[in-house]
Amino acid sequence: MAKKELIKLKINGKEREVAAEPRLLLVHFIREQLGLTGTHVGCDTSNCGACTVLLNGKTVKSCTMFAVQADGAEIMTVEGLPSNGALHPLQEGFKEEHGLQCGFCTPGMLISSYALLKKNPNPTEAEIRWGISGNLCRCTGYQNIVKAVQFASKKMAQGGK
């Protein structure tokens, strides 16, 4: 076994410091070392996006990155969606518009949608579809996810968050 590397990072606002083998994938680090199981694994081949997290403000697939690469980074997972005690407008939108069924893709979808709205607060339907094109969903057919993002976009424009 290769020697363990000390990984210091900030996840959902909290500083964490854990040693890990260099080959440990970031998604396993998050799920198993840090105990945040909202981030999922759906494919192994960097296709499905269920493992999407925000790394220094950008979406990445945490199954296609080593934890050691995230040393010093700031990460946000679904558990860290800013909420002030209530649901984030995106979470609210997914519930209101029935943007989830089995819920397995949902954390990754939320993170991709969050990043999309940060960059483009008022996206068109086409822009939303492109924005979540790295996230697969087997249940919803995406239509209600699009509506959920539109719901959040409107709500945030009205000062929701």
Partner: peptide, 9 residues
């Protein structure tokens, strides 16, 4: 190229 998450890295 690939998809948004992949293009970020």
């Amino acid at each position: 190229i690939a998809d948004p998450q992949v293009r970020n890295l």
